[in-house]
C-alpha cells in the first residue's frame, strides 16, 4: 500500500487526474507515469484535482515542473483545482500560483479550457 492513487477521467478533450493520498518522493513516480501517459497519447489539456490529496512534498511539485514546458509547447496546459489550504500553502511557498492557474473547483478549470 503506497498511500497514493491517480484516477483518470476524460471530459471532451480534457484529461482530469484525481490525486488521492500522499504525494512524496516515494509516490511521485506514479504521478510521473500518469502524466507521461497523457503526453504519449498527445493529451495536453490536463486538470489535476487535489480534493483527495492529503499531503504533498517538493518531489510532487517537481513532477509538474518537469512536464509543464513540454505540455505548453504543444498548446496545452496543466491547471490545478480543489486544493485544501495545506496543499495550497506548499504551492504558495514555492511561488507556483505565478506559474500555474489554480481554481477552486474542477468545473471552473474545465470552463477555462473550453472557453479557449
Amino acid at each position: 500500500m503506497d498511500g497514493f492513487e491517480v484516477q483518470r477521467k476524460i471530459s471532451n478533450d480534457v484529461v482530469i487526474l484525481n490525486l488521492k493520498g500522499y504525494l512524496d518522493a516515494h509516490t511521485a513516480p506514479q504521478l510521473e507515469k500518469a502524466l507521461q501517459t497523457c503526453i504519449d497519447q498527445k493529451e495536453y489539456k490536463i486538470i489535476i484535482n487535489f480534493e483527495n490529496l492529503s499531503y504533498i512534498s517538493s518531489a510532487g511539485l517537481g513532477v509538474f515542473m518537469g512536464f509543464i514546458e513540454e505540455i505548453r509547447q504543444h498548446g496545452g496546459d496543466l491547471k490545478f483545482s480543489n486544493m485544501n489550504p495545506k496543499i495550497f500553502r506548499v504551492f504558495d511557498l514555492l511561488g507556483f500560483p505565478n506559474l500555474f492557474e489554480i481554481f477552486d473547483d474542477e468545473r471552473d478549470a474545465l470552463n477555462k479550457f473550453n472557453s479557449k
Binding site: 512534498s57 517538493s58 511539485l61 517537481g62 513532477v63 515542473m65 518537469g66 506548499v90 511557498l93 514555492l94 511561488g95
Partner: peptide, 14 residues
C-alpha cells in the same frame, strides 16, 4: 531565487 529552480532543488528552499 525561485526563478533558478527547475525540477529538483525545491527542498532546501522549502
Amino acid at each position: 531565487s525561485l526563478d533558478e529552480f527547475r525540477e529538483g532543488g525545491l527542498g532546501l528552499y522549502l
